[in-house]
Amino acid sequence: MSKPFNMELFLAGVLTGSQATRQRHLRQAKAIYAAIAERWQRETPWSWQRKHVAWFLNHRLNKSKETTRYYYLLTARLLARRLEKPWKF
């Protein structure tokens, strides 16, 4: 059995802002991770492709408020920056 992925450690280098902002990004990144792991069995963000994150933003948040979608978009951009990927959403 493998260790669970530590999202807090993964994002530590790119998280900035207030404590509330950092906690929101962590909570949302964990939700993105859980949805992608369930749907595509991707164990770490290093194995993600742009389509996985785009799927989450388009299909899992399709009934969410615009502000919620915006905050998840910010978290997705933070994940892309951490992965050093040129993803645009």
Rank of each mutant, 00 (worst) to 15 (best):
Q49P: 08
A20T: 14
L79S: 00
K3C: 11
R27H: 14
S47F: 03
R24A: 15
A76Y: 10
L79F: 01
A54H: 11
Q41N: 14
K85W: 07
Y33P: 00
E38N: 10
W87C: 08
F10Q: 00
H52C: 08
E38I: 04
L57C: 05
L57I: 10
K88P: 09
N58H: 09
N6T: 10
T68Q: 01
Y72S: 02
A35L: 04
F10K: 00
K30H: 09
S47I: 00
Y72P: 03
T16P: 05
A37L: 11
T16D: 10
R69P: 01
R24W: 10
E38L: 09
L9P: 00
S2P: 15
Q28N: 13
K65G: 15
S64V: 09
S64H: 11
R82S: 03
P45H: 03
I36A: 05
M7T: 06
A34D: 15
Q23R: 15
S2R: 09
Y71I: 00
G13S: 13
Y70P: 06
M7P: 03
R27P: 11
L73D: 07
Q23V: 13
I32L: 03
K3D: 15
E84M: 00
F89I: 15
R69G: 11
F56Q: 06
W48C: 05
H25G: 06
L83V: 01
F89S: 14
R27D: 14
E8V: 08
H25K: 05
S18N: 09
Q41H: 12
F10Y: 10
N6A: 12
H59C: 11
P45M: 00
E66W: 01
W48K: 03
A80Y: 02
T68G: 02
T75K: 02
V14A: 08
S2H: 12
L79W: 01
R69N: 02
I36N: 05
R77I: 12
F10L: 03
W87I: 15
T44Q: 07
K65F: 05
L11G: 00
F56I: 03
T21H: 06
N62D: 13
A76Q: 03
L57F: 06
L74N: 13
M1K: 11
S2A: 11
H52D: 15
S18E: 12
S18C: 08
A76C: 04
S47V: 07
Y72N: 07
R82T: 04
L74Y: 04
L83E: 02
P45L: 01
L61P: 00
Y33V: 01
L15S: 04
M7Q: 09
Q28F: 12
L83A: 02
R69S: 10
R42W: 04
L9N: 10
Y33S: 01
S18Y: 06
T75N: 01
M1Y: 07
Q49D: 11
R69D: 00
L15A: 05
P45A: 02
F56H: 12
W48Q: 05
